[in-house]
Design a protein around this nucleic acid. Structure first.
Lengths: 237, 237
DNA sequence: GACATTTTTTGACGGTTCGTCAAAAATTGG
DNA sequence: CCAATTTTTGACGAACCGTCAAAAAATGTC
C-alpha cells in the first residue's frame, strides 16, 4: 500500500499537475481551446506521457467535473449540519448550492460540455460512473432532508407523490435556473437583474406548492441564507 | 425581390439542403461526428461551397437550433389559442412543450452543444441574436398568459414578485427537468420512470406555490393535457 | 557499482478536420 | 458568341488526434 517507489509517487503527482494545467486551460480557452498538445507543452512533458493518465481530453474534463462535484458534496454536507426545522436545513443546502456556483464558476461549463452526447461518449463508462455516484450522493443527502420533513409532519405528501419527486423538482429548478442565468443573452433581455434571488424565489415557491411548512410566505428564508453564510461558510468568498 | 436568376434560386435551395444533411449527420453522429467535409461529401459538392453559406459547423448547428425553435413557437402559438382560464391555457403550453421534445428530440442536443461557451463563441453575434429573438417570442407568449391571470384575479402576486419571475420559474423547471431526464444515468438510478409526469407535477406545484388558481390540488390539469392533445395536436405523434 | 531487466518517456508519424484561396468552371448580360 | 462576373473546386498549410518503436530512466540483483 504505502510502498510506492519515488518514481510512482512522481507519476501520481503528475496526474494532479495535468488536471491543474487542464483546469486552467479550460477556464481560459474553453472546450475547443483545450488540447493534449497544449497541456503537454505547458507541463513540459511529451504528449505520450499525458496519454498514460487519460485516454483523451474528454476524460480529463470528466475528472475535473468529478473533482468539483466532490467539493460540492463537501459543502452540502457542511450545510446539512445546520440546526433547524427541515425546511430551514433545505434552505441551508440552497445556500451551499449558491456559494458553490460562485466559488467554482467553471463547474457549469464542464457540466455543459459533458452533457453533450458525442462528447461524454468518448469517456470510459467506469469513469462516468464516478460522476453519477457523486451526483447520487448529493441527491440522497437532499432526499434525507425531505424524508425528515415527512417524518416530522412538516411535509405531507399526497398519495402518488414521492419524496424523490420533491428532490427532482429542486434539482430541476436549480440546475435549470443557474443554466439559464449562466448562458445566453436572453435573460438579460428579459430585464432580470438579480438571478440568485430569482432562483431562491422559485425554489421557495416550489416547496410552498408541495405544502412544506413553514411556507415561505410565513417565514423569511433569506434570513437563513444570511445566517448559514455567516455561521457555516464564513471562510467562503 | 422575385427577380432571382435560376442560379440564385439553386443557391437558396442548397442552403436548405446543407441544413438537411447536417441535421441528419448531427442526429446520427453528434457534434463531434459532424464535419464540413462529410456534409460536402454527402451533398456531392466541394467543401468550399459549404463555406459560402456557413462560416463553420457551429453556425450550422445554430441555424438548426433556430429552425426547431421556430417549430416550437408555432406549437406554442397553437396551444395558446386553447379556450379556458389562464392556468388551463398555461397547461396547454406545457402540453405543447412536452410534445415538442417528443417530436424534435434532437433539439435538446443542439441546445446543449450551443450552451458551451467556446462553441457558441465561434458563431457570429447577429446569428446568435436570431436564437435569442426566438426564445424571447416564446417567453413573451408565456408572459402574456401570466399577465392575463393577474388581470382576471386568478393570480395575485405579492409586491416584489413580477410576472416574469413566474415565467422564469416555469422555464427553469421545464428546461432543467427535461435536461436532467435527457442526459445521464443518474435519473435512472433514482428510480424515476415517468419523466414527463414528473416535469408536469413540478410545474403544477410551482404554480400552486405562486397561488395561481385553480390550484392543481383542486383541478386535474392532466385532463387538460389530454384534451389539448386531442383537440389541438391530434396531427402530432 | 556494474549490468540485465523492467518501466517510463519521447516525439515522429499517419490520419482527420479545419478554413483559405488561386485557378477553373459556370453563369450572366450585351 | 464573347467578355465580365459569379460560383465552384480541391489542393494546401496548419492544428490536433492517438499510436508506437526506439530511447531514456529506474529498478533490482550480484
Amino acid at each position: 500500500m504505502t510502498t510506492l517507489t519515488p518514481k510512482q509517487q512522481e507519476i501520481h503527482r503528475r496526474q494532479d499537475q495535468v488536471l491543474d494545467v487542464a483546469r486552467s486551460l479550460f477556464g481560459r480557452f474553453g472546450y475547443l481551446g483545450l488540447s493534449m498538445d497544449r497541456i503537454a507543452a505547458e507541463l513540459g512533458v511529451a504528449k505520450g506521457t499525458i496519454y498514460q493518465h487519460f485516454a483523451n481530453k474528454e476524460e480529463i474534463i470528466l475528472a475535473l467535473a468529478v473533482g468539483t462535484l466532490e467539493k460540492r458534496i463537501g459543502m452540502f454536507e457542511r450545510a446539512a449540519l445546520f440546526r433547524g426545522r427541515p425546511r430551514s436545513r433545505m434552505a441551508a443546502i440552497g445556500c451551499a448550492a449558491e456559494l458553490f456556483v460562485i466559488r467554482y464558476p467553471d463547474h457549469f461549463e464542464l457540466e455543459k460540455v459533458l452533457s453533450c452526447r458525442s462528447i461524454i461518449e468518448k469517456t470510459a463508462e467506469n469513469l462516468q460512473r464516478n460522476k453519477t455516484a457523486a451526483e447520487l450522493r448529493c441527491i440522497s443527502l437532499v432526499g434525507g432532508i425531505v424524508r425528515d420533513a415527512v417524518a416530522c409532519g412538516d411535509l405531507e405528501l399526497a398519495e402518488p407523490v414521492q419524496p424523490d419527486q420533491v428532490v427532482f423538482g429542486l434539482w430541476s429548478a436549480t440546475y435549470g435556473g443557474y443554466s439559464i442565468l449562466d448562458c445566453g443573452e436572453t435573460i438579460r433581455q428579459m430585464g432580470i437583474t438579480d438571478g440568485f434571488r430569482m432562483v431562491r424565489e422559485v425554489n421557495n415557491r416550489l416547496l410552498d406548492g408541495f405544502g412544506w411548512k413553514p411556507l415561505s410566505t410565513r417565514f423569511d428564508y433569506n434570513a437563513i441564507f444570511d445566517q448559514v453564510r455567516r455561521e457555516i461558510f464564513h471562510d467562503h468568498p
